[in-house]
Computed example of a mutant assay.
Amino acid sequence: MIDRDRLLDVAEKCVGENGAISLTFGSLAAAAGLSKGTVQTIFVTRDNLLEALLTRWMDREKVRFEDEKAGVDTAEAHVLAHLKTTEQEDVEIGRTVLTMLAAIAENGRTSHVMKDWYQDRLRDLEADTPDARRQRIAYLAAEGAFLVRNVIGLKIEKDRWEEIFRDLRDLARSWPVID
């Protein structure tokens, strides 16, 4: 019996070393010491393989996110937890995830896993108060910073990255109403 998780471990290593574009059933089979047919039987399509890798990353990230929220379920806690986990995301992991998304999109598809993830994080982009609007702006700015760093490859030094996210956390925090 083939261990699907072990095969995903090998696939993660392949993507990390050579990028998602190089991940094929043949390359994964060779790295895992299996036949190409065996790998294809498990995942059926390359998109399914990439989706499985994305799901695995998102499951790990969701644990980090929930730990950061520490059981608090307010809109502010939600966005602050997202900002913290985005700030702490490893550059290479971020690039790998985005490369996998690009590989799926290459076939004209969108990852339903990522759509669901964003839907949960963005909470329908509702913002009917000034605090909610600032939180939405902070969230979207964090995503923009993540993309600029990981897709464009703009080098952002650690101190600057932390400063950006401090500013975003300050923006996202609810401000006291003064009468």
Results as ranks from 00 to 15, higher is better:
D73Y: 12
I42F: 04
Q88E: 15
L23S: 05
K13M: 10
K155I: 14
L140G: 02
D5L: 12
D179A: 12
C14K: 11
V15G: 00
Q40F: 02
R56P: 07
A11G: 08
K36V: 06
T85N: 06
L168Q: 09
E162F: 01
G37Y: 05
D59K: 14
L7P: 07
K84V: 09
A138C: 02
A172L: 02
D59W: 03
F165A: 02
L168F: 11
A32Q: 00
R173M: 12
V63W: 01
D167S: 14
T55V: 08
E66V: 13
G19W: 04
F25H: 12
K13V: 11
K84T: 12
D59Y: 05
I104K: 01
D73P: 03
G144N: 05
N107Q: 13
G94K: 03
D47P: 00
R4N: 04
L80W: 02
G19C: 05
A138Y: 01
G71V: 07
E126L: 13
L80Y: 04
G26P: 00
L168K: 10
R149A: 10
E106A: 11
L147V: 10
R46E: 03
A142F: 00
A105H: 08
E68G: 02
D67P: 00
G26I: 05
I152V: 12
H82W: 14
R56I: 08
K62A: 12
I137Y: 09
R160I: 15
D5M: 13
D47M: 07
F43P: 05
V63P: 01
L54G: 03
V79A: 01
T86D: 06
L54I: 13
R109N: 15
D116R: 15
R166C: 09
A29L: 03
E87T: 04
V148A: 12
R6H: 14
N150W: 09
L34S: 04
R121E: 09
R149L: 03
V63D: 05
F65R: 01
N150E: 11
G108N: 06
T45W: 06
I164V: 15
T99L: 06
R46H: 03
L49G: 03
T74W: 07
T85F: 06
I164T: 13
D116M: 14
I152F: 07
S22Y: 03
P176W: 05
V63Q: 10
V44E: 13
I2N: 10
A70T: 04
V148W: 05
L83E: 07
D128C: 10
D128R: 14
V113D: 10
T24E: 02
Y118I: 15
D120N: 09
